[in-house]
Write a protein that binds this DNA or RNA. Structure first.
Lengths: 164, 164
DNA sequence: GGGCATTTACTCGGATATGATGTGTCCGAGTCACGGGGG
DNA sequence: CCCCCGTGACTCGGACACATCATATCCGAGTAAATGCCC
């Protein structure tokens, strides 16, 4: 029970994409270099975000990734589910039906109480994540780091793109 | 991001242990046979519960596992953390400090906003699980299955133990 | 000089190895119950 | 007949293979820009 490490990278990358204009795509190569991450694996995470419709891709020179919609329209839950999957964490294999006390399937109309309890907790978790928008993440980031950091980051990307 | 399968077995086993008197230990062999599960692996889960202090063990003939305290004093969260671990699901490696915009460590006094958001969701999840007691699970189980099921299960265990 | 076809370089996307963790299994340590012998 | 000791069977506990998934990587498909050529 642990989130994949790529999830952290994906969220940070989305936060970076939210800083730059939508028509200013960032290639995976630069994102990886910015955070000092293995580039091909980060690209795989971005690919998942692309499949989920969170980011748009643009191929060829001056291409890269850009947010598919405004940062206010992207929730943390959407990013997490894009990377780690949207299926339930707790799977109920209905083992209560096995064993000497199991009865016919038609008697089990509702999921078992254990699964319901686990799923209720998951619902609370999802609700919290769905309440956080990417724009909120960005605002938190601005509060905790010097203000000129964002401008410095954008300048770094622009310099890298023009030089190449 | 998925719970281990052994978690389901552990919760169901605890629910079974809550049905029988505390001085009526159930061996892992019978628990596995009851649910038709691989016995050694279920034993590993029970071992984790034992380390966590949720169940007591009794060796030798007529031995087995029994709840270490009343079902009203055991929460679902305790069981889940005993099996899947109590550490946080989302780990923050502080990649914000890397890259060209990173500054000295002393400027980062608080965890980054991404980690805080993820952890807040986890806290909501834990809160829900902590609110569910093993006795609640048991009551849910009684509501959804015929009343005589519990008695049948206990009779099955008693028969198995006397026969052996 | 302007427009167009070609080339080129750069990007993403899926197929492919490797390592860690969950899954499944086995054998030894410990303990209680039973049975036999002695008092 | 009762008590004690030795034996045995049954239990848990930790050490040991295997499978699956996350991690890390590579090469081909696609595209926009730049270039050179023709008009």
């Amino acid at each position: 029970m642990k989130h994949t490490e790529g999830l952290e990278w994906a969220i940070h990358s989305c936060s970076l994409l939210a800083m730059v204009p939508t028509d200013f795509p960032l290639p995976a190569r630069l994102l990886a270099e910015f955070y000092d991450l293995p580039e091909p694996y980060l690209a795989k995470q971005m690919q998942k975000l692309s499949v989920a419709g969170i980011v748009e891709t643009r191929r060829g020179p001056q291409g890269g990734y850009a947010l598919a919609r405004q940062a206010t329209e992207i929730t943390l839950l959407q990013i997490v589910e894009a990377i780690d999957g949207a299926e339930r964490h707790f799977v109920c294999t209905e083992i209560r039906r096995c064993g000497p006390t199991g009865v016919e399937d038609r008697f089990y109309t509702r999921p078992c109480g254990i699964a319901r309890s686990m799923w209720r907790a998951e619902a609370a978790w999802r609700k919290e994540l769905a309440a956080v928008k990417l724009s909120d993440i960005q605002k938190l980031g601005e509060d905790e780091t010097p203000a000129e950091q964002a401008a410095k980051a954008i300048a770094w990307f622009q310099g890298k793109l023009q030089k190449g």
